[in-house]
Simulated scan of single mutants.
Amino acid sequence: MSHATLIALAAEAEHHGNVQLETLWYGIVAVIVFAALALVTLSYRNVANRHSGKAEAYAKAHANDVQHTGHGH
């Protein structure tokens, strides 16, 4: 069989079923994966403020070590 014959036979074949229902699981899996990633992202929310006492103590102890160059900070 030639390549053109195979393409013609594939075009003639009838597709049974609903293509949308066959591919629905891809969307469901994607939603589950993105929801899990969102939960991981939200778990890191406000982490910097959990240790603000240590950060302030470090900033006070090393206040002279910071070089203020012309960046406006």
Score class of each variant (00 low, 15 high):
residue 1 M to E: 08
residue 1 M to T: 04
residue 2 S to E: 06
residue 2 S to N: 13
residue 2 S to F: 04
residue 3 H to E: 09
residue 3 H to V: 05
residue 5 T to P: 13
residue 5 T to R: 15
residue 5 T to V: 13
residue 6 L to I: 01
residue 6 L to N: 07
residue 6 L to E: 01
residue 7 I to N: 13
residue 10 A to R: 06
residue 11 A to N: 10
residue 12 E to Q: 13
residue 13 A to Q: 14
residue 15 H to N: 14
residue 16 H to D: 00
residue 16 H to W: 01
residue 16 H to R: 07
residue 17 G to C: 14
residue 17 G to M: 11
residue 20 Q to G: 13
residue 20 Q to R: 12
residue 20 Q to N: 10
residue 21 L to Y: 04
residue 23 T to M: 08
residue 23 T to P: 03
residue 24 L to P: 01
residue 25 W to E: 11
residue 26 Y to N: 10
residue 28 I to A: 15
residue 30 A to C: 05
residue 30 A to N: 05
residue 30 A to I: 01
residue 31 V to G: 11
residue 31 V to H: 05
residue 34 F to L: 14
residue 35 A to F: 01
residue 36 A to W: 07
residue 37 L to P: 04
residue 38 A to T: 07
residue 39 L to P: 09
residue 41 T to V: 08
residue 45 R to L: 11
residue 47 V to Q: 12
residue 47 V to T: 09
residue 48 A to G: 03
residue 48 A to K: 14
residue 49 N to W: 03
residue 50 R to M: 01
residue 51 H to I: 01
residue 52 S to H: 08
residue 52 S to Q: 12
residue 53 G to F: 08
residue 54 K to L: 09
residue 54 K to M: 11
residue 59 A to M: 02
residue 60 K to I: 07
residue 60 K to G: 03
residue 62 H to Y: 07
residue 62 H to D: 00
residue 62 H to V: 03
residue 63 A to F: 01
residue 65 D to K: 01
residue 66 V to H: 02
residue 66 V to T: 02
residue 66 V to L: 11
residue 67 Q to C: 07
residue 68 H to V: 05
residue 68 H to C: 06
residue 69 T to F: 10
residue 69 T to Q: 08
residue 72 G to D: 08
residue 73 H to K: 15
residue 73 H to I: 05
